[in-house]
Amino acid sequence: MKQRFLKAAAIILWLLIWQILAMIINKELLLPSPYITIKTLISKMSESSFYIALLYSLFRIIIGFLIAVVFAFILGVISGLSKNAEILLSPLITVIRSTPVMSFIILAIIWFSYNLAPLAVNIIMCFPPIYDNVVKGITNTDRKLLDMAKVYDIRPLKIFKGIYLGSVKPFLAAGMNTALGLAFRVAVAAEVLANPKYGIGTKLLQAKYNLETAEVFAWTFMILLLSYLFEYIFKIIIESRRYNAQTRKSDKVI
């Protein structure tokens, strides 16, 4: 309770500092105040183009993220189980990890349409953190549990579901969490550069051209809000799936 209060107080403090700075600078073009930002955001919310841009961006973010999860999970499991597969994939992963996002965005624009480029980049950027974590989860699987399964003559598919999947889950969740945060930043950055017909990035670019700094702030604020919201939803899903509701009430029962 006390911590919650402190957290809220911290947010209010920084909003105040922002407000004071805006008042000192006193130029909306350079730094709009929080009040102006919220006001702009609310006025934008009455336009239908706001929601269209939002939906298009969210679609790219979520679909890109999910596709990355599927690929990273499958390849991560294969690499976790086979050292050779991991060695085979490692140059590719290193290249993805060290290449600047902008290079991928430019390449994606060359290779794909403006609409598809942000989605493609998003998939590529979300892949490594999930993949790495899945590999780690598989290789960290308790040898003793696998020995137990061997003695009890458990079928391979059951071993995978019962032992590997169980030990991968927390790693997968951590990887997905990192990737989700990344997806919001990467997808919007790619939209700014690729400039698809609809998207938050396109709106940001338009606002920049029109010197509508308050609008840039409003959109940025919106992205932060959405990113936070999705991470929160994700956290709730993960926690509710961890243990069933009945036993979650109290941790150590005995």
Binding site: K144, L145, Y152, I154, R155, I163
Partner: peptide, 27 residues
């Protein structure tokens, strides 16, 4: 031969209930 094995430590699957841990070894 078919074996059962009681190890030094329980070696239960932490993410399964007691019930599912038993179900796990049943074919």
């Amino acid at each position: 031969l078919r074996y059962s094995y009681i190890f030094q430590e329980p070696r239960l699957l932490e993410w399964y209930t007691v019930y599912k841990n038993l179900q796990f070894v049943l074919d």
